[in-house]
């Protein structure tokens, strides 16, 4: 479904990504794990056309999307849920969801119904200004907003950022439910244990490179991963 081939990205003279190859198949859940500054967000930005790719190719559903405009990439069915539960904070929950369905306003009512099924809390807060929601609620709104566009691939950047453990659990349950409904999910996450428990496969990133990849079960039992990312918590 998504194939990233040998891409390079740099911020001015600083090389941020080198020779990255990943692929995501339809129906899968895939994680990018790695410490702060490993380049996870940069890779997601490159896929979304937010960060310029200096070499390599990105192919989505058989078409090349390398360095195509972000709005065009979104309209092809890539739904990025950015880091830091970003919402349109001066607008209501409903307006945020309406904006989410920018490209298929005709299915708005159906989509809204199914989104409220997954997020009953948002239904209750439909007319609340999004900036006044709690962090967890904003993260849910951010996910719900992207679902309004019926994306073919959901890309979630660090959904656990700044949230309490209980809320993180809820968010992962929601993502699990979405995958059961047929959504393909690419997840970037620092909390390696959480991520590996959730996904089918994962890529491990270290300072701009992919150092390991494989099925999540294999990575969990890999001593290198265990020491570096799972620590004593297992």
């Amino acid at each position: 479904m998504l194939r990233v081939e040998d891409i390079f990205v740099s911020y001015g003279p600083i090389k941020a990504l080198e020779n990255i190859n990943i692929n995501v198949n339809a129906g899968e859940t895939v994680a990018l794990i790695g410490a702060n500054g490993a380049g996870k967000t940069t890779l997601l930005k490159a896929i979304m056309g937010i960060q310029k790719v200096s070499a390599g190719k990105i192919i989505f559903l058989g078409e090349e999307i390398t360095n195509v405009g972000t709005d065009k990439i979104a309209n092809r069915g890539l739904g990025l849920i950015p880091e830091g539960h970003l919402v349109f904070s001066t607008m209501t929950v409903l307006e945020n969801l309406q904006l989410g369905s920018y490209n298929n306003p005709n299915c708005f009512n159906d989509n809204l119904e199914s989104v409220f099924e997954s997020f009953p809390i948002l239904h209750k807060r439909i007319n609340q200004i999004a900036g006044t929601l709690s962090g967890g609620e904003q993260q849910m709104l951010s996910i719900a907003r992207s679902l309004m566009a019926k994306p073919k691939l959901i890309i979630v950047d660090e959904p656990s950022l700044g949230l309490a453990p209980k809320v993180i659990g809820e968010i992962f349950n929601i993502l699990r439910g979405l995958n059961k409904k047929g959504y393909t999910i690419l997840l970037a996450e620092q909390k390696a244990k959480k991520a590996l428990e959730f996904v089918d496969r994962a890529y491990v990133m270290e300072i701009g490179k992919i150092v390991l990849h494989g099925p999540a079960q294999e990575l969990i039992s890999n001593p290198k991963v265990h020491n570096a990312y799972l620590g004593s918590k297992i």
Binding site: I50, D71, A74, L80, P82, L99, Y102, R145
Partner: peptide, 8 residues
Amino acid sequence: LSSIIGIP
């Protein structure tokens, strides 16, 4: 964020 949700 607007362009991320597909707004030109």
